[in-house]
Each structure stands twice: as structure tokens, then as C-alpha cells.
Nucleic acid binder design. Structure first.
Length: 507
RNA sequence: GGCCCGUUCGUCUAGGGGUUAGGACGUUAGAUUUUCAUUCUAGAAACAGGGGUUCGAUUCCCCUACGGGCUACCA
């Protein structure tokens, strides 16, 4: 076996991919890239009742959007396939049977109903050493009866036989030594009645077969780690076991409970990376992408949830993260998600992104409002002019719409100029239209000089006409420097806007 | 209930036996921007509690409290 670093992201295709999932994928990716290793996508679709059509494609789309495409997986191929556990079904039974033969596992014929009843009758019922000896399994039942049940095809599961009074532990890369007492662990089901493995069996078998060297997963898996440890040992693969790193959980903003898929967008912010439509009922759950997040920002904010490089730096590109990521700087405590800070990251990324990078993402935003800017020669300039004002990509609409559409008499902020309007201002703007038509090189500075020269000439205060000029062109008290706006709009357009305003004000 | 993990400003976090406990988000106040945003300056804001160990503990150890996770033929 080579010593190449191999990590896997192993989601279950049961719906949208949420924050925590993407972060796990990201940390896997960073670690793999940093060490010249492989990043594998493995689809854990062993629960046929929870399978959701389209979820797998959606997950891959999310990873692609974030720029963390797997090297191996159901779509990328690879030497360790198949990468969907449902397609590896036959494999798991062999190992489960091997464990039964070795005496480390056993057949159990109890029906779910019987177990439910036990749980009701016996407080804190656990299917383990305390009860396994009088339940319907191959430990308690006579051999010939078990043979008969198997021959008759009676539905059964295979359970691990957890030893009594053993101390078992491992060194977590994030938490250090973690120990468990086996007597407190129950005999987890390894192979379900439908022949599919549970997570516990599948994760061990596949991590071994796929030669995974480091396993990152959420902290919620910590309690089942001892089961996995036992399996690695019983299957005889102990020396090949990956190193574990249990990531801190991402908590709801109020700190009560982990952020879960089911939170959807009910918390006032999205939980999913991208829009997700439930194929069963058509319900749409909003995602970060559609809300106007840049993938760079999304990746950045996710990385900072539980990791930092020890300095004050907070803005990291994916490349920088690959360079600087280190497991020992991952924090142990869960992190409450703060949407305000998330938006700050996006704002920062928009501000520092080039117009060229932003342009293809701004065009669809404008198109949603029937502004078709793709062939607009000044689009890049407009983006540079307004990007400081945009926290989300969707903000580009309200901050740049006036470049493409004349403000209407209904939307213009008349109250800010009308009360102080007078004939002198009307005269000034008429004269300005005239003067501006004579400008040969239509540039910000020239427009400004012309404007100011006219102010002098007319003997009025510049403060009295600056705001009206802005409002006439833009519609309100916002936007970049007014002469920059005038330059982009062009002399014809500003003349039309001034004329329209004068007509309204002169009624 | 049992087991496991955790605990520095409201939030994300840095730090680490001796510090004015640092930064960022948010927030407050000012400056700049003849608009808004950006930018800049300043302010308020934290070591959960109790025992040890030590000359000294927020930092190391123990206990308690609190929070979280798991406790399915779900992952």
C-alpha cells in the first residue's frame, strides 16, 4: 500500500447539502491538496427509504461551485469504484458473514416491532451484553433453529458483538485521546434486513478498501467511533486504520442545537449551499449561491468556522487555504453561525474582486430584472463603480439599475429637491445641457470642469445643484461620484434625463 | 437517564503561568466622501464558578455548573 494521502467526503444523498457538509468537504479538499493527496467523493446511499432523486447531482454541483471538485467519485471515476455504496452491496455481506464466523458478530431475528416493545418495557433498553442473551438471535437460539430460520429466509440483521468491560480509545487529530468503556456500547446493526450495510459497517469496509488515510467527519460521529474501532480490529485491518479528525459542529445562531438540513431557510438565512427543490413536493429551499454569495466568500467563511491561521488574517482565497490549512489549528468547540459575519465576508470579496470576475455573475442578476447587460460595453466600468456598495451579488440590481433604465417620475426623490427649486436652477441646467453638448472628450474630469465653470458663471452655489444633478440622473441620494455616472451615461442620455426632470419640475 | 465532547467580549476567535487579555463581525460616537457605500479614528464589550499546584493562574490538574452531541435495521 502506498503512503499517499487519501481522504473522502461521504455524504448521504437525502436532500440539499448544508453548511456543515460543505465545510467537511472543504477541509478534506484542503488537506488532500496540501499534501498532494486524493480527494474522493463516496455516496453513502445505503438507506433506500431516504434516497432522494437528484440529490447526488446536486451535491456534486455544490462542490463544483465551491471549486472543490473531487478527484475520484461516481462521476469522476477512479480505481477504487464503484463509489456508490448501493453498488457495492454484495461486498458488505461477505465481511459481515466473516465477522459472524469469527464470533464477533451474530444474526438477530428480532423484528423492529419487538424491539420497540422492549424499549417501552425496559427503561434504557440497549441491545447489548445485558440483554442479548435472551433475544431472538444466534447467541441465544439453538444452532439448528438458527439454521432453520436462515434457510426459511426469515428476515434478519447482523449485529456486532461488543465485548464487555474493555477500554477502547484512539487519538483524535483534533481532540487528542478519547476513551470509551465497551460495556456502555450497544450491539449496533451492521447489516440490515434488506442486505444493505449500516453506516458503521460501510464506512469501515470502504475506508479500508479505498485506502483512506485520514477521515474527517462531524463531531456527532464521536460516540460511534468505538464501534468502528472494534470493526477495524476484528476485520484485521487495524494497522491500516485512517487517522480520525472529528470536526466541531456548526450551531444555530442562538447556540441551541446544531444547524441541520431541516432548518432550510427558516432561520432567516440559508442553510444550503445552493437552491434545492424537493422533488417530492416541489418546495424550494434557498441557497447561498442564489442569494448572491460569491463562491470565494462562501468557502472563506466556512473555513473560518472552526479554523484560523493564528494571525489576524480573515480573508483567504482557496489557494491560500490550501497553503496554510493545518489540522492542529482547528478548534474543538462548536461555532454558532452568524449570518451578519457571513455577509461581511461576501462584501469583502465583492470589493476586492475584479470586474472581470464579477461580470458573469452580475449579468444573471440584472437579467432577472429584465436588464440585458451582456453586451453593454460599459458594464465592467459600472461594476467597478458600484461594487463597494454591494454586500450581495443581488444588490447589483438596485445599485446599477439607473445606468440602464431612466429613473421615472414616480421613483425620483422629488421631496429632496423640489422645495428648494427655483428658476435659477432651471436656467442652470438648461445652460448645462447646452454646454455639455459641446464637450468633445466626454470624460469625468471634463464634465466636472464644465459643470463647475458654469456654476461660477451663473454665480450660484455648487452645493445647490450637485444634489439635484445626482437625483435627476440617479433618482435618489445614493451612488458613486455623480460625474462618473454622467460619463457612463453619455451626453445624450443625461440631456434627456435633465429635460424630463425640468419638465416635471416646471409644471 | 447513560456515554462522549466542549466552555475567552452578544458572535467568530488570538493568546497563554507574570499581558493595559489582541483582532474581526455587530454596535455606539466622530471624521472623510457637496449623496450613499467605502475608508479612517475613537468607545462600550470576555477568561462560567469553586478548589488545588505555584511566589504568581485566565492559562496546568480536579470538581461543579452550563452548553452541545449520541443513545434507530438514519447517516
Amino acid at each position: 500500500m502506498s503512503d499517499k494521502i487519501r481522504v473522502r467526503f461521504a455524504p448521504s444523498p437525502t436532500g440539499g447539502l448544508h453548511l456543515g457538509g460543505v465545510r467537511t468537504a472543504l477541509f478534506n479538499y484542503l488537506f488532500a491538496r496540501q499534501n498532494g493527496g486524493d480527494f474522493i467523493l463516496r455516496v453513502e446511499d445505503t438507506d433506500q427509504t431516504r434516497f432522494v432523486e437528484g440529490a447526488e447531482e446536486y451535491i456534486l454541483d455544490c462542490l463544483n461551485w465551491c471549486g472543490i471538485t473531487p478527484d475520484e467519485g461516481p462521476h469522476a471515476g477512479g480505481e477504487f469504484g464503484p463509489y456508490r455504496q448501493s453498488e457495492r452491496k454484495a461486498l458488505y455481506r461477505e465481511y459481515a458473514e466473516q465477522l459472524v464466523e469469527q464470533g464477533n458478530a451474530y444474526y438477530a431475528f428480532d423484528t423492529p416491532e419487538e424491539l420497540d416493545q422492549k424499549r417501552e418495557e425496559i427503561p434504557n433498553f440497549q441491545y447489548g451484553h445485558t440483554h442479548r442473551n435472551n433475544l431472538r438471535n444466534s447467541i441465544f437460539l439453538p444452532v439448528n433453529e438458527v439454521q432453520q430460520l436462515l434457510k426459511d429466509g426469515v428476515p434478519h440483521v447482523i449485529r456486532i458483538k461488543v465485548p464487555v468491560d474493555e477500554n477502547i480509545g484512539f487519538n483524535d487529530l483534533i481532540r487528542g485521546r478519547v476513551n470509551f468503556e465497551t460495556s456502555t456500547i450497544d450491539d449496533k446493526v451492521l447489516l440490515k434486513a434488506d442486505g444493505m450495510p449500516t453506516y458503521h459497517l460501510a464506512v469501515v469496509v470502504d475506508d479500508y478498501l479505498m485506502q483512506i488515510t485520514h477521515a474527517f467527519r462531524g463531531e456527532e460521529w464521536l460516540p460511534s467511533a468505538p464501534v468502528h474501532l472494534l470493526l477495524w480490529e476484528y476485520l484485521g485491518w487495524k494497522t491500516a486504520m485512517p487517522q480520525w479528525a472529528h470536526l466541531p459542529l456548526i450551531l444555530k445562531p442562538d447556540g441551541h442545537g446544531k444547524l441541520s438540513k431541516r432548518d432550510g431557510d427558516s432561520l432567516g438565512f440559508p442553510v444550503y449551499a445552493m437552491n434545492w427543490t424537493d422533488p417530492k413536493n416541489g418546495d424550494l429551499t434557498k441557497g447561498f449561491r442564489e442569494l448572491g454569495f460569491l463562491p470565494e466568500a462562501f468557502v472563506n467563511l466556512l473555513a473560518m468556522l472552526g479554523w484560523n491561521n493564528g494571525t489576524d488574517q480573515e480573508i483567504f482565497s482557496l489557494e491560500e487555504l490550501v497553503q496554510q490549512f493545518s489540522i492542529d489549528r482547528i478548534s474543538k468547540a462548536g461555532a454558532q453561525f452568524d449570518f451578519e459575519k457571513a455577509k461581511w465576508y461576501n462584501h469583502e470579496w465583492i470589493k476586492q474582486s475584479s470586474a472581470a470576475n464579477l461580470e458573469p455573475q452580475v449579468i444573471p442578476v440584472l437579467r432577472q430584472h429584465n436588464i440585458f447587460a451582456e453586451n453593454y460595453p460599459q458594464l465592467k466600468k459600472i461594476i467597478d463603480l458600484v461594487k463597494d456598495r454591494c454586500t450581495l451579488l443581488t444588490d447589483f440590481y438596485e445599485h446599477s439599475a439607473y445606468f440602464f433604465q431612466k429613473p421615472t417620475t414616480e421613483t425620483i426623490d422629488w421631496p429632496s429637491i423640489q422645495p428648494k427649486w427655483n428658476q435659477a436652477k432651471t436656467d442652470f441646467f438648461r445652460a448645462f445641457i447646452q454646454k455639455s453638448q459641446e464637450i468633445e472628450t466626454w470624460e469625468t474630469v471634463v464634465i466636472e470642469t464644465t459643470f463647475k465653470g458654469l456654476v461660477q458663471e451663473k454665480g450660484i452655489k455648487i452645493g445647490e445643484v450637485m444634489l439635484p444633478f445626482r437625483i435627476i440622473l440617479v433618482g435618489g441620494k445614493f451612488g458613486p461620484a455623480v460625474f462618473d455616472i454622467a460619463e457612463v451615461l453619455g451626453k445624450q442620455e443625461i440631456a434627456e434625463r435633465i429635460e424630463a426632470a425640468l419638465a416635471f419640475l416646471g409644471r
